[in-house]
C-alpha cells in the first residue's frame, strides 16, 4: 500500500490530469491514478468510476472528489477539484479568444480534426483496458451487461439516465444473486 497523498500531492496530480486531458480526461486519470501513482487498483478505479457515473455531474470531477476525500478529507476533495478544473477553465477562455481570431485558417482547423481522431482512439484504448479486469472475473455476466450498455448508448442512442435506471438495478441484482 502506498502512503496516502496529502492535499498538495492531490492538487498537483489532478492539475497534471486536467492539463493532459485533450479530448477527454478519463484516459489520463486512469493512467495517473492506477498506472503511475498506484493510488488505486484496476478494479478499484472501475468501481469508483461506476459510483461517479451513477451520480449526476461531470464524471471526472466526481472522481476527483471521491479520490481527494478518501485520502485527505474535505480539504483533499477541494484541492483535487480545484487542481483538475482551474487551469483548463483559464485555458479554454484563452482558446475561445484565439479561435475567434484564427479559427478560420485551414491548417488550424485540420490540426483540431486530427487531434479529435487521436483523442477518440485514446478513449477506445481506455475502454479496452477497463474491460480487462471485468472479463477476467465473471466474463459472461459482465460481457452481457457491457454489451447491453454499449448498444443502448452507442447504437440506439438512448438517454443515459434511462440506461442507468434500467441496466444498473438489473446488473446489481444479478451480481447479488450470483454471490449467494
Amino acid at each position: 500500500m502506498i502512503a496516502a497523498p496529502n492535499a498538495r500531492a492531490l492538487f498537483l496530480t489532478f492539475l497534471g490530469i486536467g492539463l493532459s486531458g485533450f479530448g477527454g480526461v478519463l484516459p489520463f486519470a486512469r493512467r495517473a491514478l492506477v498506472e503511475r501513482r498506484g493510488w488505486m487498483t484496476e478494479g478499484g478505479f472501475n468501481e469508483t468510476l461506476a459510483l461517479c457515473q451513477s451520480l449526476p455531474g461531470p464524471n471526472i470531477v466526481n472522481l476527483s472528489v471521491v479520490v481527494g476525500s478518501r485520502f485527505a478529507g474535505a480539504y483533499g476533495a477541494f484541492a483535487s477539484v480545484f487542481g483538475l478544473v482551474a487551469a483548463p477553465v483559464g485555458l479554454v477562455m484563452v482558446l475561445a479568444g484565439l479561435w475567434g481570431r484564427f479559427g478560420a485558417i485551414g491548417h488550424v482547423a485540420s490540426a483540431v480534426t486530427a487531434l479529435s481522431a487521436a483523442a477518440a482512439g485514446l478513449v477506445a484504448a481506455t475502454a479496452a483496458r477497463m474491460a480487462r479486469p471485468l472479463l477476467s472475473g465473471s466474463p459472461l455476466l459482465g460481457g452481457v451487461v457491457m454489451a447491453a450498455a454499449f448498444v443502448a448508448v452507442g447504437v440506439l442512442r438512448s438517454p443515459l439516465p434511462l440506461v442507468m435506471l434500467v441496466l444498473a438495478p438489473l446488473s446489481v441484482l444479478a451480481a447479488r444473486w450470483r454471490a449467494r
Binding site: V123, G142, G154
Partner: peptide, 28 residues
Amino acid sequence: RAIASGLAPVTVGMVSATAWLLLRAADL
C-alpha cells in the same frame, strides 16, 4: 459488493459507447 460489481460493466459499456461515438464523429 453486488453494487460495485454490478455497476462496473455498465460503466465500461458506456465508455465503449463514448469511444464508438467519438470515433464515428472524428474518423471522416
